[in-house]
Amino acid sequence: MRREQTLADRITGSALWRSFVRHGYPDTQRNQALIIASNVFLHIHPVKIKRYATKVTYTFCLGGLSFFMFLVLTMTGILLMFYYIPSSTQAYQSMLDIQSSVTFGQLMRNMHRWAAQGMVISVFLHMARVFYTGSYKPPREFNWVVGVLLLVVTFLLSFSGYLLPWDQLAYWAITVGTNIGGAAPIIGPQVNKILLGDFQIAQSTLIRFYTLHVIFLPLAAAFLMAVHFWRIRKDGGISGPL
């Protein structure tokens, strides 16, 4: 006896649906394997993992949260870019506009700011978790080095974004920060000049920090993350008790 076709059956049986979803509902092991293997976003994972790797108290989700915050920062950052003007004369006014005139502008700005602070903390804590569980040991030593580079890029992303609001907080924090860089032995003055593009923070500094913040450093982070995640798989998955 044939079951009557529901609307859902007709949709999931259609040629259109079947052209982009190539497996059935993931309630059998076969379909659960297929959904991971045939989805571009999910196939970052293997089909099966060790049971301990799903334990929240082992990883505290810190690496995943760092990546998730990067995604949130990318989304909110793109929205802010529609309104923010990287000009020393207009930047501060565009901040005021984002906060007062743009729909959900203040919310986007707050989410971007707090996620940025959160990402610095979560990346740092992720490093501590990986260290204390000995997860850097061979064969994962190179991935640990990539992680240290990602920590540096995270600091630079946060630091370069710090100048953009062009308020007193931003201006003087970056003055202090670039002075610290300028104190480097031998190359200090050159480092300071390259960062500022001037003798003090000016339009040339703002456009340098803006370009670093919205394109160069995110691309560098994305590149390193691709290596980082790939190496997790290649080094035998997430670490665990032997």
């Binding site: 659960q32 999910l42 099966k48 993992i49 799903t54």
Partner: peptide, 8 residues
């Protein structure tokens, strides 16, 4: 071992 979908 567990299946990544749904466990992870």
């Amino acid at each position: 071992e567990v299946m990544v979908w749904p466990s992870l």
